[in-house]
Computed example of a mutant assay.
Amino acid sequence: MRILLLEDEFLIAMDVEQLCRDNGAREVVTVKDLDEIEQDKVAENFDAAILDVMVSGTSTLGFARRIRAQRLPFIFASGYTDMDEVFQTFPGIPVVDKPYSGGDLIEALAAAISRLRGSGRV
């Protein structure tokens, strides 16, 4: 699997990257700013994504809408405190609160992938 990690905190990104690799990811691409990624082709280049709600002071919710439309499995992993919009806009999308355990993160990502795999996406 090739995982997109949208995270602007260096140490967290390193931990999540290693966690994903330890659990079978072939590659983890960390992006700390939305300008670093070609947003219209994410589903062509990745198998799943882990998104922080805010990166470099910018909301990732618009990006999340794009990848949901592309039917890319994703989860939110965030310490952002005002999550009402996330829960309302993305019902059924797993949200793992920081600080999180590695097991919680991997379980949420696996559930997101399984949900779309059952619908024929992955």
Rank of each mutant, 00 (worst) to 15 (best):
E36G: 03
Y100V: 12
R121P: 11
V16Q: 10
F90R: 15
R21G: 12
T58M: 09
L109Q: 01
I67K: 10
R121V: 13
F74Q: 10
R71T: 12
C20W: 11
R66G: 00
G57W: 02
D40H: 03
I106H: 05
G92V: 12
G118Q: 12
G62P: 14
L116V: 14
I12T: 00
K41E: 04
V29N: 09
V16G: 04
F90Y: 10
G79P: 03
V31L: 12
A69H: 04
L34S: 01
E85M: 11
K98M: 11
I67V: 04
L116I: 11
D15R: 09
L11C: 01
Q70S: 03
D47P: 01
A49G: 02
A77M: 11
L72S: 13
D35L: 01
V28S: 10
I3T: 08
C20K: 13
E107T: 07
V122G: 15
S101L: 09
R68L: 09
F46V: 01
A13G: 02
L5E: 02
D8Y: 05
Q39V: 05
R115Q: 07
S119G: 14
D15A: 11
D52T: 03
A108H: 10
V28L: 11
F74C: 08
L6M: 08
R117T: 15
E17H: 02
E36I: 00
T58L: 11
D40K: 02
R26D: 14
D40S: 02
M14T: 07
P99Q: 03
I75W: 10
M14I: 14
D33K: 08
R117N: 11
A112Q: 04
I113K: 02
A43K: 01
G120C: 08
E44C: 04
E17W: 07
F87N: 07
L6K: 05
L34G: 04
G118I: 03
F90C: 08
F76W: 00
G24C: 14
P94G: 09
R2A: 13
